[in-house]
Each structure stands twice: as C-alpha cells, then as structure tokens.
Design a protein around this nucleic acid. Sequence first.
DNA 1: CCGTCAAGAACGAACGTTCGCTTTAGAATC
DNA 2: GATTCTAAAGCGAACGTTCGTTCTTGACGG
Lengths: 195, 195
Amino acid sequence: MPRVSEQHREARRAQILAAARRCFLRNGFHNTSMQDVIGEAGLSVGAVYRYFPSKSAIITAIAEEAVGTATDALAELATLDPPPPLAEAVALAVDALEPLLGPDGVLRIAIQVWAEAMRDDDLAEFVARVYGELRARFVALAERARASGALAADADVEGVGAVLFALLPGYGLQRVLTGGPSREAFLSGVRTLLG
Amino acid sequence: MPRVSEQHREARRAQILAAARRCFLRNGFHNTSMQDVIGEAGLSVGAVYRYFPSKSAIITAIAEEAVGTATDALAELATLDPPPPLAEAVALAVDALEPLLGPDGVLRIAIQVWAEAMRDDDLAEFVARVYGELRARFVALAERARASGALAADADVEGVGAVLFALLPGYGLQRVLTGGPSREAFLSGVRTLLG
DNA sequence: CCGTCAAGAACGAACGTTCGCTTTAGAATC
DNA sequence: GATTCTAAAGCGAACGTTCGTTCTTGACGG
C-alpha cells in the first residue's frame, strides 16, 4: 500500500511499539529478539525496519514512554490547590501509581529501564532529567507545606521532597518484587509516620 | 594444576566471579559475553566452564550475592538494644547502605537483578524471600517502637515497617539514577518527617 | 507506470557451549 | 628420593545456532 496516510504510518508505529512492549514485558529487552517483535506485530522484517532503524531505537522509544508515564500519572498532583497535607499527597500519588504496578504495568518496564540506564549514557541522562523533575515537584510540595505552616520554617524542603519521592519507587518495588504490602497497609504506615 | 587444594578451587571460583562482577557492572548481564568474562578473568574458555556450567549460573551467583549484601549490611540493625527511634534507625540503615551506592557498588548490580527477576522465576523467588525478610526486620523495629510507646498502640506495624523499608531503595535509586539527594539532605528530610 | 511500501531470503558477525588434546600436581611404587 | 602413573585442570579451535541488519524482489495505489 504505497503512499499511505500519516495516520496509517502512526498506527503502524504504535502497532510495532505495542508488540515490543508485550515482548519486553514477557522476556526483557535483551532476551527479546527482533524476530520476536516482528512476529508479535504480525509484520515482516522489512516493514519493521521501515519504521525503526534498529532494535535499540525501539528500546529507547519504549523506555522513554515507560519513564514518562510516571510523570504523567503524577502531573496533577503538583498543581492541587490548596496543597494537600503531605500524607495525603503521598496517598494520592500511590493511588495514581497503583494501575502501573500490575503484571502488565509499566513499572515492570521501568525497572528494566533503570538497569539499562546504567549502560546507556543517553538513556541515563533522560532518566535523570525526568526523575529529577519529578522529585522537584515533591520539593515544591514541601515548600508549599512549609509556607502554609504544615512544616517548620527551618525544614529542609529538598530533603523532605526527596523522602516523599523515595516512598513511591520504594513502594512500587516492594509490590513488584515481594508482592506486598497492600496499598491500605502502606498508606496506613504513611499516615502513622507523616500524619 | 591437578589434584589441587580446596582453597585453590575456591580462589579460582572467586577469581571468575570477580571478573564477572566487573564485566556486569560495565556492560550489564546480557551485554557481557562469556568471552568478556573469560578474558577479564585471564583464563581460558575451558577453565571457566570447569567451574560454572553456564553463563546463567554465573549470573545467578552474582545476583544472589548482590541481593544478599543488603541483608548483611543491615544485619545488626534489627538487634540493636534498646531499639533506636525510627528516624535514627533509618539513618543507621542509610549509613550502612552508603558504601553500596558508588559507581562500583552492588546497588548497580542489584538493580539489574530486579530486572532479571521479572523473567527468571527462581531468581524472583529468591529476591522475594530476601527482601521479604528484610522488610520483616523493619516491621519488627516498628513493633518494638510500638511496645516502647514511640508509636501509638493501634499503629499498623506492617505498614510502618513497609514505609521504613521503602525509604532505602527509594533513596538508593535516586542516588544512582539522578545523583541526588545528598545523604545529609535525605536524612534531614527523614528527621523532619519522622522525628 | 511511477513511487512507495512490504516481504522474506540472505548475510556476516557473534553468541554460548562442546570436546579432544595438553599440561601438571600429587599419589604410588620401588 | 627418584621414577612412574593418573586424573584433575587448563586450553582453545570449532560447532551449530541465533542474532540484528541488509538487500533484492514484487505488489499495489495514485
């Protein structure tokens, strides 16, 4: 089908990426072969190589998508007005991340990206930027809490933001790697300690 | 060297594992070839295959070592008497983990293990057990805090333990992926929120 | 009938592993 | 204590497979 519409091209790209995502979830980046992706997409070698120049380009696309998803999920949190109490902000963040924790959730891809980032400098830079910005949002949250008197005037907002942010991957990792704790138990712990 | 001492055999094994560790830090599990490990160890193909039946056996050995290191580093923490305040316990844990965060630290291997655990059921089981036990120590810490009155009598110790535990990978990941925050800032945040 | 796109055979490189040969430390023998 | 024997330890060329990628070929819409 020559001279194809822009939509069609975009759809093909998405089709390939969706196939790659399934393969990567199942077997990881490096135990997935191009043949796996090609077969899963129901396309031919030539078709896939028309849309992506290499395997690593596909990995990069999936990786950036996976890392960016966390930002999207937490986007509204930073803009809530009035700023919620910190325990409540963490609860909202945990709720936003909950859909990402399942067996097909992006967290399982994000973890692979973290591993990949330690060998791929470009990816490392991207990850550092995205997660750095994410932490900055929690720092901003802490700043607003300090401004509203919920935190002491001399509180270290950088540190508080980092701690709040740390709770999220810490929780997600536990869930993915050990199965526990339940959302309820974790949030109960958060409220006990931060409430 | 035939009929060789048990020490010699153990030393050779350690030599191969040390070489593998360096290779895996540099290039990750799957971008390291057996030739890489063999070359780094300064041995021959046959020699390495005498000590390890396969590449995945080497990966498993390195992975279990890396995951177990965290347990070792936190071993004493659970037995401190009297139980430290929770913020102080986290500070001690952070200090214990600090040496693992560097560019050659085990955390960089542990992250790869997390990714690997999502494809390797045996490894997943091992990781779940080790980190489950680690979390249990923090739950025990929370229990003792409750018993001493530092936590309310109706506090959810499972949740509190999970939150305390979550701080550690959350902090380590930030450090490895984004470079920050500093130990001091993070601990200042911990003391602000848990103190 | 041209320009675009898909198909899949083909390619060289690199992979993990095997296997048969050589070397050598220590036991056995005298 | 010298000599012989033996089995463990080491070696590395070679194997078959699979990898990511390229290239030739044909098909189809405009």
